[in-house]
Computed example of a mutant assay.
Amino acid sequence: MRRTEFQLKGIAQISIRVHNMEAAVQFYRDILGLKLLFQVPNMTFFECNGVQIVLSIAESAQFDHPSSVFYFNVDDIHAAYELLVEKQVQFLDKPHKVVETGHSETWMTFFYDPDQNVHALMCEIPTLLDEAGQPHK
């Protein structure tokens, strides 16, 4: 019997198109703090909490386009924002709440990498609950 279904098991690797490898490596390693795994010609590999991120120079025009938006989780979005601003990272906005549920708030802020790819910092902040289990006003 042939299986016709499959299940995705997670993200193994994400590729980000870059034009200046040296500037991109400096940004992702030294500013964002990703762990450098190894480099080969036209490619650099990082690790981010179990996901491999590869910076690559496009081999053809077909692959030379902006990347998807990556949402990097942080514990304290305001502190991370301030630290990255000090490191001259260009942000599109300031940290802002995008959704609130009964138990948490989701905050985001978007920034550019050296190739003008847009990425985001994201933080889930638990909502303080009163004695009745309702969010504080």
Rank of each mutant, 00 (worst) to 15 (best):
A120F: 02
E47C: 06
V99I: 15
F27D: 00
S15C: 05
M108C: 11
F45W: 13
Q88C: 04
P66H: 04
F110A: 08
S15F: 02
E105M: 09
K87P: 09
L129R: 05
C48H: 12
Q90G: 03
E22W: 03
A79R: 15
H65F: 12
V98L: 15
R29V: 13
K97Q: 14
Y71W: 07
T106R: 12
N73Y: 12
I53P: 02
E105T: 13
P126L: 08
A79T: 15
E47R: 13
Q26V: 03
V99R: 05
V51Q: 14
H103R: 05
A23T: 10
T127S: 04
A79M: 15
H78A: 05
S68E: 14
V51T: 15
S68R: 11
F70M: 05
A58P: 01
H96G: 05
Q39V: 04
Q26H: 13
Y71G: 05
K87F: 09
V99P: 04
V99S: 04
V118G: 00
Q134S: 13
Q88W: 07
M21S: 00
E59G: 14
I53V: 15
I53K: 09
C48L: 14
L128G: 03
Q39K: 15
P135L: 09
D76R: 08
I53Y: 09
L121W: 00
I31F: 02
C123E: 05
V51E: 14
K97L: 14
M108W: 10
Q90C: 02
H78T: 11
Y28R: 01
V98H: 07
I53C: 10
Q116I: 11
P95N: 08
T44A: 13
W107V: 01
L34F: 15
M122V: 13
I77M: 04
P135E: 03
P126N: 11
G50H: 05
V98M: 14
